[in-house]
Amino acid sequence: MASHAEPSPLDPHLVTGHGHDHNPIAHVMPKWMLIAVFSALLALTAATVYFASFELGNYEVLVAMSIATVKAVLVATFFMHLKYDNPLNAAILLFSLIFVGLFIGLSILDTQSYRGDVDEWRANQASEAAGD
């Protein structure tokens, strides 16, 4: 793919971040890092599928979401360059996630609080229908 001589992934220059790949505007991701991130993502996918085969009860959600979040962080940090970017971009992403949390959190808070009323109403409807 690249036109010039490929240093091996174990090349100390690459590992220490002093490779030949330069760009005047932005940071260039070294090849080994791209491949390492991809491998980690695949391994985590396998792990989440593997864990799903156990009956973990309520922890199932926790485990699956934790693994997904680790994967998401990997993608955002490396593939999406956030590690090397203006921190403002990461702040925007975090900020949007905070608002997502607010949105989902407050909506669930409410629907959970009034679900009793709804269930009761449904039960009444059902018993009325049965009574008729």
């Binding site: 608002f99 407050l106 808070l109 409410d110 009034y114």
Partner: peptide, 22 residues
Amino acid sequence: GFLVWGHHMFTSGMSTVAAFVF
């Protein structure tokens, strides 16, 4: 402004907990 949307729903069948918070 993002934290107060529930005040449009005080009489919509929203729970008292959420109504109080909002």
